[in-house]
């Protein structure tokens, strides 16, 4: 991930009011995680699985603070059950920032299923999302995801792909 994109993401998260970032690290965002850890304005919480991260983010939202769940898109599969429960069942929103493993250009066989399942799962969950592959569009996408999520009280996702993460 380019250093400028890392800065753009963190700046956009701060502009959206994010003070907590839960993450399970992945390789495409590998430069983002230490930058988040090192940022004085954002508390990071490393989790054991993405579903746990979704639930923690939901709890942060209940406090009046804003959180983001950062992960590879494979984490969506791990998080579906808690996302369904807290989002569909209780109307507690979680905003997700995902790297797009398995998009066109993927050169790892094991990552292909991540691409095949992500968008159908987001559709099944009725989670609106934006796939961003150009750095100038990152900030607007993150802003829009938080705006929508906190109007709908439901989850939203931003997926970073292309030259942003490779």
């Amino acid at each position: 991930m380019q250093a400028s994109a890392v800065d753009t993401v963190i700046g956009a998260l701060k502009a959206a009011g994010v003070s907590v970032a839960c993450y399970l690290p992945d390789s495409l965002f590998k430069e983002l995680y230490p930058a988040l850890d090192g940022d004085a304005d954002i508390r990071t919480i490393r989790v054991t699985n993405e579903g746990e991260g979704a639930a923690i983010c939901g709890g942060v939202w209940l406090s009046g603070k804003r959180a983001v769940l950062v992960m590879e898109n494979s984490g969506l599969r791990a998080a579906i059950e808690p996302l369904a429960r807290i989002g569909m069942g209780a109307g507690i929103p979680v905003v997700m920032l995902m790297s797009y493993r398995g998009d066109l250009g993927e050169n790892n066989w094991w990552a292909i299923p991540h691409g095949m399942t992500m968008e159908p799962l987001l559709g099944a969950m009725r989670i609106p999302y934006r796939v961003v592959d150009r750095e100038p569009e990152i900030a607007r996408a993150i802003h829009d995801a938080f705006t929508w999520s906190h109007a709908a009280y439901y989850h939203a996702a931003v997926v970073l792909s292309g030259s942003i993460v490779r």
Partner: peptide, 13 residues
């Protein structure tokens, strides 16, 4: 599986 994680998020906030 969500109760204590949510409580942690609330406690952090």
């Amino acid at each position: 599986g969500c109760v204590t994680p949510q409580a942690l998020g609330l406690a952090v906030g």
